[in-house]
Design a protein around this nucleic acid. Structure first.
Lengths: 227, 227
DNA sequence: GAGGAGCCCATACGAAGGTTTGTAGTCGCG
DNA sequence: CGCGACTACAAACCTTCGTATGGGCTCCTC
C-alpha cells in the first residue's frame, strides 16, 4: 500500500523527487526548449524538457505539483493528441499550449480538453510565467484533494463487505434497527459493525463519517469523476 | 417566498414561461438572426433574438433552461464584454460564441470565461445545434442544483440565530453536552433547539441534516461558488 | 489442526439523543 | 398592554447508540 520508489530511472525526474514543483516542456525545437528552460529556471522553477511526446511518456512522472508547457504542433504525436492520451491514462497534469501557427478550432479543442491557457508566439515571457504559476497552483490543489480522497479510499478498503453494506445504510440515515431489518440481522450485530466502521475509518463523530461517505460517493452522493 | 410573475412584460420571454428551453440569439445582422432563428425553430426550439446586447439585458430572463448564441463582434458592447457583464451580475447562462473574424486570444478569453463552444463562420448547422443542445442540458442541470440549494437556503433562513449556532456545532460533530458547554447552555436546551432544527429543515435523519449543512457550506464545507 | 478472519448474536449497562409538558424572562409591535 | 417570537430551563420518560463480555459458526491458510 505504501510504495516508495528508491531507484529513480530518469535524471530529470530524479532531482526533484521531493516537493519542488516541476515544469515539463515538450517542444521539438531545441532552441525553444533551451529558452524556456532558462526562463523557468531564472525564476527558480525546476524544469524537465523533452523533444517529443513519447520521450516524456516514458518517464516516471514525479509525484509533485507540476504542469506541462506543450507545443501544439509536434512531429508524430501532436500536442492535442498528447492531451487526449494523458486524459485517457488519467494523468491530469495542467497543460499550457504554445503555438506559432494555431487556429481557432485547435484552440477550442485544447481549452475544452481542460487546457489552462493557450499562448501564441510571440508571447510575453511574463504571460507564460503567470500561466505556469497558476497551473502549478491548480495542480497542487488538485493533488491535495486527490490525496485526501485516496486516503479515505484506502481506509474504506480495510472494511469487510458486511461493514461496507452497513456503512451505506448508515450514510443513508437509517437507524440501527432499520439497518438490521434491511440486512436480516439483529440490531446488536449492526451496532458492532458500526463500531468497527467508526474505528477503522477513524471517524470521530457520525458527522465525520457521513462526510467521508459523501466524499467516497456512498449513500446519496453521485460517483466522483475520479482522481 | 414563492413568487410567480403573471404579467410577462416581453412577448419574447412570455410565450415560453413554462418549461420549454429557450435559445437566445444576439447578432447585429438581421439576416443571420433570421437564419439562426429558423434553424433552431426547425428542430422545435424556442428562440428569442436580439440585435444588440443591451436589448437583451433589458429583458426579464425567463426561468427556464436556456443558452445564448452570441456573435463575438457586436457594435457597442462586444460579445466578450457581455460575457463579463453577465458573470458580474451572476447570470450563468451558457454561451456559444460564433464569429467570422475571431483570433486566438479572443477564443482563449471566451473559453476561460466559461463559454461552452466557439464556432467560426462558416460552420455546419449540425455543429451549432449540437453545441446548443449540450449547452441547454448543462443549464438544466445547473438550474436543478441551484434550485435545490436555494430551497435549502430558504429553509435555513427560517432558523433563529440561536438555532443556526447550534446547527453549526451539530454539523461539526459535537455532542449535545459539548454544544451546551460551547454556548453556555443547559444540555436540555440544546436538545430542544436541535429538535426545532430538524423539523424546520425537514431533515429526516442526522445524515440528512449533515448533508444539508454541507450543501450550505456550514460546519466543515467551503463556501460554494454560488448560483 | 491450530489460528485467524469474518460473521452472527445474547445479556447487560451506561451514555447520548429526543419529546412532552410546563414555567419564565426579554423584546418589539400594534 | 397583551401577544408573539425568541430564548432558556426542569422533570419525567422513552428510544437509540455504543461498548464490553462471552459464545458460536464457517472458511481458509499455514
Amino acid at each position: 500500500m505504501i510504495e516508495r520508489p528508491k531507484s529513480p530511472q530518469s535524471a530529470a525526474a530524479a532531482e526533484q523527487q521531493l516537493k519542488e514543483p516541476v515544469v515539463f516542456i515538450i517542444d521539438d525545437d531545441l532552441s525553444v526548449r533551451r529558452a524556456l528552460t532558462n526562463l523557468f529556471e531564472s525564476v527558480g522553477l525546476h524544469v524537465a524538457a523533452f523533444g517529443s511526446a513519447p520521450e516524456m511518456l516514458q518517464q516516471r512522472l514525479p509525484d509533485v505539483a507540476s504542469c506541462l508547457v506543450l507545443d501544439i504542433r509536434l512531429p508524430g504525436l501532436s500536442g492535442l493528441d498528447l492531451q487526449t492520451e494523458l486524459a485517457k491514462v488519467n494523468i491530469h497534469i495542467p497543460i499550457i499550449f504554445i503555438t506559432g501557427h494555431g487556429d481557432i478550432p485547435m484552440t477550442v479543442r485544447a481549452m475544452k480538453g481542460g487546457a489552462v491557457d493557450f499562448l501564441t508566439k510571440p508571447f510575453r515571457d511574463q504571460d507564460l510565467l503567470d500561466a505556469v504559476v497558476k497551473a502549478i497552483e491548480q495542480d497542487r490543489r488538485r493533488r491535495e484533494v486527490a490525496k485526501a480522497v485516496a486516503g479515505l479510499k484506502s481506509l474504506f478498503e480495510t472494511l469487510t463487505p458486511r461493514e461496507r453494506e452497513v456503512l451505506a445504510l448508515v450514510a443513508a440515515g437509517l437507524m440501527n434497527k432499520q439497518i438490521a431489518a434491511e440486512l436480516g440481522l439483529a440490531e446488536i450485530t449492526v451496532k458492532i459493525h458500526r463500531g468497527h466502521i467508526m474505528r477503522k475509518m477513524g471517524a470521530r463523530s457520525l458527522a465525520d463519517l457521513i462526510r467521508m461517505a459523501e466524499s467516497l460517493g456512498i449513500g446519496r452522493g453521485k460517483p466522483m469523476p475520479t482522481t
